[in-house]
Each structure stands twice: as structure tokens, then as C-alpha cells.
Design a protein around this nucleic acid. Structure first.
Lengths: 239, 239
DNA sequence: CCTCCGCTGTGACGCTCGTCACACCACGCC
DNA sequence: GGCGTGGTGTGACGAGCGTCACAGCGGAGG
């Protein structure tokens, strides 16, 4: 496939090791080269929208750096965050494969570099490389699992406290500093966004944060979060 | 792969055209034969449990006839139905591919005939047939979309009426009799199950049914449902 | 420095809907 | 037939949380 960037595209991808090492690792060399040839790298500022719910699928984005929130909105103004994609993840995959409209809107949370791969090129690539297709199926499973998690927030929790406690426990520890402070998390979402993740209102999240701080379940300084009483949080989840 | 059934398995699958015609259609002959060789057919009564949330994945089931409900349960006793798989669909796929525990419990709603394919055999088959892997990716997309629908029920609806109206509109018209009575549906779920699908309580569903009947939005005789005022239902959804 | 804007805290109010409780019905089964 | 069991209707009650309203605050940008 021809891109307006020509060789630079490949250079870009070499500068972005995630594409090879994390997303399509273990693929044969020629397959990776083929992938490089059809992907176009670009950077997006905070707030940029990669695609909108209901649009015809144009292709997939592979995130090199940054985070993207995937959400759906209702006519009423309500919205739910389905999941937040991290660096190394792929977005737009289900729509691109099934040719149905994007099921969510993708909005960039922090400056992001991503490789875009057009639908036809991507499908052609998968048809050539059966092992890549299998890899893609695994990724879809990942995405699906994340979505199931979301259903547990929305459907299986009895109260807002339970949802919030579960949300805190589900936060992934920041990479690298893992074992030094195992209960340290980084929380870069606004209350509004947390509310959209766990299915309550912004005000409720606000109240929950202060309540949890008062009960010494968490400590919060800026975006640095400390789970000071994991046990108690787990009990709240199983209540 | 050897199954205890030998040739009978193949016979079974010939007697069950869904496997070939609907699930893995358009695959080359030899691929289909390979699939037959590794699948084992069986029938399950109503209430049978194919697998349980949290179990290690053993493999996938391809439904020939019947319907299976896939649900998750909380410690509190609450449960949410993620989706209901119809004849022709495949279940257990995400877990089998990703080797994570089953994310839901699968319970048979009506007498069901299904082909079971063991994990290792299935993965081996996919590795051999790249086009089948792509097909599988598409199926995963379908499953994912169904799950997103569920999120809309649980998260984006403002009230129980809205959820229920959306639920009614989402019901698929029974195959065959399609255009004769386009607003006719069949509803074989209990109120309890409907409640688990849309995320409310059984009593609320009961009340909604009677309220909708009184307002002449629906007519209900046995399992036969008539949407007598689709317009009004659609307005309730967009409220 | 001042201004605006987006994010956050918190009070008051009231509506929805979940819960409990019970009655009724249609079955399948002994 | 009598009985149990699973599904259904419906009333009463009240807690939870969504909504509205407003105030404080910090950072970006002129």
C-alpha cells in the first residue's frame, strides 16, 4: 500500500518499538515489515477525537504512547466509558473487522502517538498472515474482558460505594515502581470521568472520595493515590 | 485428533448443518472436514450448565439448536445476563483464546444440541487455517458488540422504563414469519431473566409489563408478544 | 495582575426503584 | 385429588443517589 509518507513511515515505526515488541511480537520478520509498510504514524493532542460512535470504520489505531478513552453517549447527555486504552493497545479493532460502525467514541486523554492502519490494508495483512489473525483474536478477547469488567461495575454492584471500591482496586500499579510501593497508584482521571466509568454521578464520586479519605481507606495527593487499607476496600466489594 | 466417538461424530455434524453452513461457512472443504474431526456433539437438557464463571477454559461450544444464557453473578446473589446465544453461535470463545478463566456461566435455556471442541484441538485448527482464525475474529467482534449493547442497557439508560422499552425494541423478530407480522416477537424469558438483562428487579419488570399493556404499547399472550405502538416505544428510549 | 473556565466540594430535596411481604395461578408429580 | 414449586401480580415503605444550586480554587492565558 502507498502512503504519502513513503519510507518515513517505517522510520517512525522503528522509533516506536511498542508496535513491534508488544503488539505483534513473535511474528516473523517479513510479517512485521509488511505491517510497518501499511501503518502511518501521527501524534494527537489531548482532546483529539480519533473516531466517533456511529462512524463507518476507517481502520485501526495502535497506540505507541499516551492513553485514549473509549466511551458511548446517550441522547440525554449521559455517557459511559467502556474502557481506557493504554500504550501498546489497539483500538477500533472490532468495528474494523466486522465492518459495523464504531461502537464508541475515541478521545485522546494525553498527548498520544499512534499508528493508523487502513481497514483494507489491515484485512489484507491478516489474510496473508494467519498467525497475526490469531494474535488479533487474542487482542479482541482482551478488549472483551475489559468490557465485561465494565458490566460488573454497572450491573453487579449494589451500591455506589461498592463500585468505587472495586474501581480503586482495579487500578493498575504504575509500571516500573511496582514492588517498591505496591499500594501506590496514579489517578489522572477527573471525577466526571470516574463517574462515567462506574456509572454514577460526578457529585457522588466527589462525596465518595472525601468519605474514603476520612475513613483512611485512601490518601490522595495530586494524582498520586495510596490505598492505605486494601482489606477494608475488598470487604466493601464483597458486601 | 482422536475422539471417543470416531466416525459418529462426523455423522452427527452432517445431521447438524448449522455447524458448516452458518458458523464456518465459506471455508475450504478440507478445513471443514478437519473441524468435524475434532468436534464432539452432545445434547443438553434445560438448566444444564456448560461451564461456570471462573473455571479454566476447556474449549468452545458451537450451538446447533437451542439457546444458552451467559450470565455473571455477584456474591450478593445479584446476576446480570451478558447475552443469550442462539443456534449457530459459538460460546466460550474469548476464554478459550486467551486462556483466562471463563468470564460468565453458561446455562441452557431450552434443550440444546451443541458441538464441543477442545481447546488444544481448536487452537491447532486455527493455526492451520488462517482464514478460520479471521472468521473467529469476526465472531468475537459480534460477541463484543452484544456486550456493548448490554452496557447501554445498564449504563446509558436513565430509567427502568427506558431500559425496558429498549429491550423490547431490541428483540429479534422470529425467523421465517418475518414480513407477515413485522411487530410480532416471541418472548420466552421469565421476568426474572429480563430483569437480569436490563439491570433492574423482577418486581419492576412485572410492573412495567402491566403498565405497558395498560398503555397499549404491547400485547402479550403466552410467549407471543405484539409491539402495538413502536413509535411510542422509540420515544421512551430517546427520552 | 485579573479573568475566565474547568474541576472540585457540599448542602437540600425528592423521586425511583429495590426490598419485603403476601396472594394467586399453572404446572407436574406422587 | 392434594401438594409443592416456580413464575407472576401488587401494595407499602424508605434508602440511596441523582439533580439542582452555589461556592471555592487553581491554572492558563491575556
Amino acid at each position: 500500500m502507498n502512503t504519502p509518507y513513503g519510507l518515513e513511515v517505517i522510520e517512525d515505526c522503528i522509533a516506536c518499538p511498542l508496535l513491534k515488541d508488544r503488539v505483534f511480537c513473535n511474528l516473523p520478520k517479513d510479517a512485521l515489515a509488511g505491517l510497518d509498510a501499511i501503518s502511518a504514524s501521527a501524534t494527537y493532542p489531548k482532546g483529539a477525537v480519533l473516531f466517533v460512535e456511529g462512524q463507518e470504520p476507517r481502520g485501526v489505531f495502535i497506540l505507541c504512547t499516551g492513553r485514549v478513552k473509549l466511551f458511548g453517549a446517550a441522547a440525554s447527555g449521559k455517557s459511559v466509558i467502556f474502557r481506557i486504552a493504554d500504550a501498546g493497545e489497539i483500538i477500533g479493532l472490532p468495528s474494523t473487522l466486522s465492518e459495523k460502525p464504531y461502537e464508541v467514541t475515541a478521545e485522546v486523554l494525553e498527548p498520544t502517538q499512534a499508528n493508523f492502519i487502513r481497514r483494507d490494508a489491515f484485512l489484507g495483512f491478516l489474510r496473508q498472515h494467519g498467525d497475526a489473525a490469531l494474535k488479533v483474536a487474542e487482542m479482541l478477547s482482551q478488549i472483551y474482558y475489559a468490557t465485561c469488567q465494565e458490566i460488573r461495575y454497572l450491573g453487579l454492584a449494589g451500591s455506589a460505594v461498592e463500585k468505587f471500591a472495586r474501581f480503586l482496586l482495579d487500578l493498575k500499579p504504575p509500571k516500573g515502581i511496582a514492588d517498591a510501593a505496591p499500594d501506590r497508584r496514579t489517578l489522572t482521571l477527573t471525577h466526571e470521568e470516574i463517574a462515567a466509568m462506574i456509572g454514577t454521578s460526578r457529585e457522588t464520586v466527589s462525596r465518595l472520595v472525601t468519605a474514603f479519605k476520612r475513613k483512611h481507606l485512601i490518601e490522595l495527593h495530586g494524582s498520586s493515590l495510596l490505598l492505605t487499607n486494601k482489606k477494608a476496600l475488598e470487604e466493601l466489594v464483597n458486601a
